[in-house]
Amino acid sequence: MATDPIRTPAAGPADAPPVLRARGVGKVFGGVQALQGVDLDVAEGEVVVVIGPSGSGKSTLVRCIDQLEQIDAGSIELDGELLGFRVDRGGVLRRLPTRRTAAQRRRMGMVFQSFNLFAHLTVARNVWEAPVRALGVPAPEARERARELLERVGLGHKADAYPSQLSGGQQQRVAIARAMAMRPRLMLFDEPTSALDPELVGEVLGVMKSLAQERMTMIVVTHELQFAREVADRVVFMDAGTVVEQGPPDQVFGRPATERLQTFLHRFSAAP
């Protein structure tokens, strides 16, 4: 297991501090309350799937966690470290300079709906560029690991191709390898299969499932409810910028407590 290219975290004690802790997170976009009072804990090795109607704030939540958006209320901690802010000597909360938030982002991997592979770089370079530039990993070592990661997602033979020469499913698998190359503590997925043709969804979900099996800590925003049933340790249902209901998949899908979740699930099963 030591040579495994994808990190396998040792299962911590049951009462270990959470990898991620969000408290009362709020975000406003020009008058629109995108997030309001969101609390979320994610434990080591846990897979949390976030579901909810369009516009409910799912993307905003993962983007706030990844510091791509600045939060307006509450706090987010990664391994007990406050994200995006520091407390100065006078006890005043101040935004971190970009250099410091960049360092925090390196500990989280983000997979976007639209892949966002670097169009002018080869697939392999997409994977090893950031470890070399941002983490200072020696280039030969980073290339070797990029090769292993690409093998892992079944794309070893595409290392020298450019992203435009790949199918959407292949591009998204490269994007996952690129994020994993930073050896993140936490992986964030924002509707990773929503831009894919239906027949390509499976290959991406397959890679995500194998990450989950290796106990990668993950937050996954998705409409693939079957994936949520099979892989999630916990399902979080969001609506109108708040967490409405959460729990194990059996409970959330089998015995939805709120009317909003019932409506959502009903609409979802009616219109595939």
Binding site: A102, R105, F112, S114, N116, A119, A130, A134, A179
Partner: peptide
């Protein structure tokens, strides 16, 4: 999206 991906990777 290209810039966001770079930012998200923590690229300086």
């Amino acid at each position: 999206g290209q810039l966001e991906a770079a930012t998200s990777l923590g690229l300086p």
